[in-house]
Amino acid sequence: MISIRGLTKSFNGTAVLDGIDLDIAPGERVVIIGPSGTGKSTLLRCLNFLDHPDAGRITIGEVTLDAARATRAEILALRRRSAFVFQNYALFANKTAKENIMEALVTVQGRPKAEAEARALEVLAETGLADKADSYPASLSGGQQQRVGIGRAMAIGAELMLFDEPTSALDPEWVGEVLDLMRRVAARHQTMLIVTHEMQFAREIADRVIFMHGGKIVEEGAPEQIFGAPKDERLQRFLKRLTH
């Protein structure tokens, strides 16, 4: 169970998150849409404490913390409950594809190397990159790097996977393979919170779609409702702009 209450964050006096309340059920796939600069990515980054929220409560599984007075240990515990997929892949350049996936298992989870390696190869096979196990990120295409990035997040076995515009930095030719992999992740009832501009994909994969505007959740509902019968005028305008 994931629960967010009253999450706020401002940069230089401008409120980017203005009191976010959100519950996500186990296995639920939630997609966040909205115009640029409305706090979608900041929400994801705050859940992972890549940006520190100003206030609010975050619960992921057994870990609950109060953002305003989170200790270093609490932040680590929270981060270890979720896995983050970055827009620009953010692979470790000094590690091979396999080592990128093993890193969290060995260093953070303290699993034996052999076990971590077996798991990494298993994940690489699922991402269709078994033959790239020993390749460094610099020699992989954008699509391949992002599949490794997703694999790194999958291997952790986190309760929540966060996807921050995972296809936005990709050349169009690589978008399909990354979305395919995300569909496979979704098929395993992984809890996912996804920020994306791929509306077709959002419609297809989401159990629930959230529309954010001005640091607030303005409207949420099933994809048919959000895309088919939007109520809020700002959402209607946002969707209209996309189709024209």
């Binding site: 992972n48 404490f49 890549l50 680590l76 981060r79 270890r80 979720s82 896995a83 983050f84 970055f86 620009n88 892949y89 953010a90 692979l91 470790f92 350049a93 000094n94 590690k95 890193e103 969290a104 260093t107 953070v108 790194r152 952790i156």
Partner: peptide, 23 residues
């Protein structure tokens, strides 16, 4: 070292020491 790699190391739950030493 690219900022995103610092964030990736933090996101998988590394301590600062682990991040510095390994990445």
């Amino acid at each position: 070292v690219d900022r995103s790699q610092w964030e990736a190391a933090q996101s998988i739950g590394m301590t600062q020491l682990q991040m510095m030493r390994r990445i």
